[in-house]
Amino acid sequence: MPDYRHALIIIVVMGLMTLATRILPVLIFGRGEKVPDYIMYLGRVVPYTAMGLLIVYCLRDVQILDAPHALPELAALAAVCLTHLWKHNTILSVVTGTVLYMILVQIVF
């Protein structure tokens, strides 16, 4: 059985942090003060770094050295990229990649 208390703490803490990114800028700069260029700069560029960070985070347990040498992951990633570049449809790309990955890890490898 999962540790529900810990789960609740994690949700509340992550919720507070998310709320801070939405509300603190309003509390601090809501009266028309000039927003420091550095803050605006980080707000603009950090999102572009965050997606790469998240992708690596998702794949943190992949073992390239052991069989099946990350083949299911690589195949499914390729499927997502190709589908997305071809059709530009997020749902289609996600479903295609996930179904392929589930077939690969459950049946093929």
């Binding site: 803490v13 992550m14 942090m17 998310t18 990114t21 309003v26 950090v46």
Partner: peptide, 19 residues
């Protein structure tokens, strides 16, 4: 906490531009 802050950082930009 730090992960949430980093991942949600784009909201800073959204909120500021909607003030």
């Amino acid at each position: 906490a730090i992960t949430a802050l980093m991942v949600a950082a784009r909201h800073i930009f959204f909120s500021i531009s909607m003030i």
